[in-house]
Nucleic acid binder design. Structure first.
Length: 230
DNA sequence: TCATTAATGTGTT
DNA sequence: AACACATTAATGA
């Protein structure tokens, strides 16, 4: 198991301002210049660390690190309305991170200066950020525990449940995870390997917990949740 | 359409 | 978990 890196994954999520109310995002977005990124583009790399905050308006972005051996480790998958960036003040511990567009994206770039100005004008925005960070920390603890105790199968189910929560689309008994994730990408999120993920997904399919297709995953949340209990 | 690449499935060490 | 290899689906010239 790769606890040290897993730990970094969950802790680094704390830095993100996801789940920020739409109204505030819009307000911020209004001042920020619009930008686009095409599928596969690197929006942030460790060298060119823009002193900016990125507001994802449309599309999916994946944050990842490279291990010393050059393997990718996914920190988080972000959807529309999420914020990410490299501003020291709010991202302690998030250096060395890459942000890559998983699909074509529309985003806004907020320069450090503008953000600071905004926080001065609307201090309550800072309070809101703090609340979000606290919630993130709580979640991080919960997820860390799963990682520490669970085996691959349990970690995978847990990850799928989390992704279903965030990106799920109901389809009858199943919930479609609306990301085009490959087994390799899933593996890089739970510190496992592609083959192991493939094998576990097969077994979960036999148990009727998930249904898979190429870059396609549906999960029966009821059965999955039941699996997490023991 | 055909050739190439990407994703997945499986067996072995 | 790592590796090798087979199979199948997607991509794009």
């Amino acid at each position: 198991m790769r606890v040290p890196e897993d730990r970094l994954w969950y802790l680094s999520q704390i830095n993100l301002f996801s789940e920020m109310p739409k109204a505030d995002l819009e307000r911020i977005g209004a001042k920020a210049p619009m930008s686009t990124a095409r599928k596969g583009d690197l929006i942030i790399t460790p060298d060119r660390e823009g002193q900016a905050l990125y507001l994802l308006k449309e599309g999916r972005v994946r944050l990842f690190r490279l291990s010393p051996e050059g393997k990718e480790f996914t920190l988080a998958v972000l959807g529309s309305g999420n914020v990410f960036g490299e501003i020291e003040t709010f991202s302690a511990g998030s250096r060395g991170v890459y942000a890559q567009a998983m699909e074509d994206c529309f985003l806004c770039v907020i320069l450090k200066h503008d953000l600071e100005e905004l926080l001065r004008a609307r201090p309550e925005l800072g309070v809101k950020m703090l609340r979000i960070l606290t919630e993130r920390l709580r979640e991080a603890g919960e997820l860390l525990e799963r990682l520490a105790h669970g085996g691959i199968r349990q970690r995978l189910v847990h990850l799928l449940l989390k992704l279903a929560e965030k990106f799920g689309v109901e389809e009858g008994k199943f919930t479609r995870i609306d990301l085009n994730l490959t087994h390799q990408e899933l593996a890089s999120m739970i510190g496992s390997t592609r083959e192991t993920v493939t094998a576990n997904l097969s077994s979960l399919t036999r148990d009727g917990v998930v249904e898979t297709g190429r870059k396609e995953i549906l999960i029966d949340r009821q059965k999955a949740a039941a699996l997490m209990e023991p």
